[in-house]
Design a protein around this nucleic acid. Sequence first.
RNA 1: UCCCUAGUAGCUCAGUUGGUUAGAGCGGCGGACUGUUAAUCCGUAGGUCGUAGGUUCAAGUCCUACCUGGGGAGCCA
Length: 478
Amino acid sequence: MTRLKIKDILKDGKAGSEVVAKGWVRTKRGSKNVNFIALNDGSTINNLQIVVDVESFDETLLRDINTGAAISVKGELVESAGSGQKIELNAKELVLLGGADPDKYPIQPKKHSLEFLRENAHLRFRTNTFSAVFRIRHAMAFAIHKYFNEKGFNYLHTPIITASDAEGAGQMFRVSTLDPKNPPLTEDGQIDFSQDFFGKATNLTVSGQLEGELGALALGEIYTFGPTFRAENSNTTRHLAEFWMIEPEMAFYDLKDNMDLAEDFLKSCIKYALENCMEDLKFLAERLKQEEKGKPEDQRSMDLIEKLEFVLNNDFIRITYTEAIDILRNSKPFKKKKFQFPVDWGTDLQSEHERYLVEKHFKCPVILTDYPKDIKAFYMKQNNDGKTVGAMDVLFPGIGEIIGGSQREENLEKLETRMKEMDIPAEEMDWYLDTRRFGSVEHSGFGLGFERFILFVTGMGNIRDVIAFPRTPKNAEF
RNA sequence: UCCCUAGUAGCUCAGUUGGUUAGAGCGGCGGACUGUUAAUCCGUAGGUCGUAGGUUCAAGUCCUACCUGGGGAGCCA
């Protein structure tokens, strides 16, 4: 008899039918005559209740079926006599597939702190919270591919090892096969990377954007979805050294088209989550509610599902950087000198300013556009005012910047001038500049931090809890 | 990297102005119980108090350094 997944048994299982279920024991409880096993196989947040008539089974077998053990159960589905579930499985055959020594198995049938589970990241998938998070993470990855596929975008695999440091997006991880103790040196004492594997210094990518632009200016619309690496010593709940990024790049799109796409894209994924992950979302929403019970009422966040629906059903506010500065300078916290950092045109907005705009002033996702050129990257489209560029950042409540994007400068001369001003070596970027030399067109793109988006959808508070094996400064376990 | 904060049983924590033998709940184990819902009830084992120094008659408690975790900031996605 083939195994059925617990998700399907709970959904379609008919009383009276015989089935085989396999999974991991969450809890076992009961009395002298009857035991109840809550069995979970990861297909759903819900457990299948296994009813075991104690007298029909070997005592030592039942003793070894404890929290964490893997078992196979053959039996008859019956309508449950208890009130917690509609259907349950009366065990006829029980097989212990893999025991779990209760003295050593760290996951107990009780609430664990996220910090403890992070140290046991290899086993935390077996908890309700993390199985829900990772099912949702999967669903969002799928929704992203589905969205772009339906829009006619091509999934482009940009390189993970790269020789360009062009974007200056951050510190890079070096990729080298040279002997770290005794590297070959050039005449002036520098490390001689011409003898390295690739014949030059190489790093892990910080962004696939520049390569993405090459694809877009031939295929029309492309997107990347892959790992990205930043060697910054960032220790926050929103940063990882290794994270996943989605970077669409579109020919013939101006900044407005770019914003329209970003908003529609985010909403489409959120809609997919609401339509396909409701049980997991409900569990996480309830968890969040319990978590926040201790907090004063005004500090509690909106119910997770209400929050997702709110974002889905409301237009994002779109304002320019200059307008945002005006709003901030007229705000209460500014006038009462509550902001820690100054608000002056030309400086980048600080977290406190972004939070004020999103969480206090508009209470809604905000797209900020047209930033001063000096605080943005060289490739952004230069506006006619000579001061700003066609950048756009999407700010989400609780997360901050979730998307950063721009229209790209398509004019070769303007781009070269800007690169000179910003000391970017044009000779190493010749391949990139070719897009502007041959058939250059207006085009745009953006980058979405996948884990930051998953933070938002799951309501989790720490980015280390939405990626399976987080890489952060001083931590590369597992 | 900076600021704040924490590290005591497998987990979550309490441990007063430094003072005798370091406690609880949960989990584990043993037992009881005719259907439980993270069951309940009774019993039981389990701890060089993050590490290294220092102050003191006396340190889980005070001081210093380091390590690790958490929160915030910067950098950004």
